[in-house]
Write a protein that binds this DNA or RNA. Structure first.
Ligand code: SF4
Ligand code: SF4
Lengths: 127, 127
DNA sequence: TTATTATAGACTCATAATATCCATAATTAG
DNA sequence: CTAATTATGGATATTATGAGTCTATAATAA
């Protein structure tokens, strides 16, 4: 029951981007990977998913790199987690014996609270 | 970010034990495995862990099987999860850059809420 | 045109969850 | 006592997935 390393990296990368916001315009993956102590090719893969969801902006070419989009303050920790790990669910119901099942409902409740918790956290709070 | 199948089985087994409490005294693993549609040898392994934590009672020999302990009403869903999956943590911090780290604190908060959520759920509520 | 940067796909590797098998111990019925 | 039934423990196999690498390609600035 863990957040994946990929999400871990993504959150840290976001945190760093946020921390540098205003000071620097674009950060190449090399620099980010250096900060996070992870291979740059791997981090590329992770960040590509954030780009696809528009949570960061990528610029190819010399002097390019990653930066935050205009609406970055709206991005939540939940958004990042889902972008990397996919929709988060605590419980995979193999059968679904109907709506009234207590086990299912119980898990859903805790799950919903967790999702709420992550949604309430903006990436702005990461630094 | 999922509860393991093992925990899933354990919760369902507990639910069944609770539902049969009073009516039947001991349920052999064969019967439980049949109900859950899982191999009995595998379920044995799972239940053995619950036995070790005293969340269920095992009786060897003919007419034996699994039953609930005297204090079964105190058992929480959290207890079961931990017994099978181990202590649950959302976040593995590879570095721990100090107490003031926001990322860490944020994850811990959501994690603590989740744990609270599971602790509040008694296995009694499973049926 | 060249250097620099991101993207995409195929691929490998490591690890843990899942599951099976079998031998052994405990208990009861007869 | 013996045979049948039940749980336990260890070894092992299988599978799935996360984690990570490599390489070719596209885009962009200088
Ligand atoms: S008993 Fe409930 S949780 Fe379990 S498989 Fe059926 S519907 Fe799902
Ligand atoms: S930045 Fe915070 S969460 Fe990340 S490794 Fe350091 S202490 Fe842990």
């Amino acid at each position: 029951m863990k957040v994946s390393k990929g999400t871990d990296y993504a959150l840290h990368a976001m945190a760093y981007l946020v921390s540098q916001n205003g000071k620097r315009d674009k950060l190449p993956v090399q620099e980010l990977a250096g900060k996070l102590d992870v291979s740059s090719t791997y981090l590329s893969k992770i960040l590509a998913r954030l780009v696809k969801q528009k949570y960061i902006v990528a610029t190819s070419g010399a002097k390019g790199g990653y930066s935050l989009p205009a609406d970055w303050e709206d991005i939540s920790v939940y958004d990042i987690i889902v972008a990397i790990d996919g929709e988060l669910t605590l419980f995979e119901d193999s059968f679904n014996h109907g709506d009234e099942c207590k086990i299912q409902r119980l898990m859903m409740e805790v799950e919903a609270d967790m999702i709420e918790g992550f949604k309430k956290k903006s990436v702005e709070e990461l630094i």
